[in-house]
């Protein structure tokens, strides 16, 4: 059995800004089909992608938060945010649609260091 490489997907964009978050999420779902362990890090503005109560229909777009809720059905539960980034937008973890692990900003470098592959969209 080949040891699976550990994959980290970094989200960096706010909602409705580009297709990057959607693309990154597609990668996550594809990894699930191949049993590749994947972690998701929502950096900076990307914490806003996790904000509850979005109404994407007003912009005539698909609701990415709905699809993010499907992660659990794909057995993807390793989601991370940086406390300082939440604080910048006066958010708490209760404002988020996903259960995320907290990561201290000072731990970011060693966190990234531990992965084998990092995709930063």
């Amino acid at each position: 059995m080949v040891t699976q490489k550990k994959l980290l997907l970094i989200f960096r964009n706010p909602p409705f800004s580009s297709s990057a978050n959607r693309d990154n999420l597609d990668i996550a779902l594809a990894c699930s089909a191949f049993d590749i362990p994947v972690s998701l890090l929502f950096l900076n503005d990307a914490v806003l992608q996790l904000h509850k109560n979005q109404q994407s229909h007003l912009l005539e777009q698909k609701d990415l938060t709905k699809t993010l809720n499907a992660l659990e059905m794909y057995d993807i539960d390793q989601c991370y945010v940086i406390d300082e980034h939440l604080a910048r937008y006066q958010l708490s973890k209760d404002d988020l649609i996903l259960n995320c692990h907290s990561l201290a900003r000072e731990k970011l470098a060693s966190f990234i260091h531990d992965f084998d592959v990092v995709i930063n969209l």
Binding site: M73, Y74, D75
Partner: peptide, 9 residues
């Protein structure tokens, strides 16, 4: 619910 056709799992 998820705006997505499910895969097998």
């Amino acid at each position: 619910e998820y705006q997505l056709s499910p895969a097998m799992r």
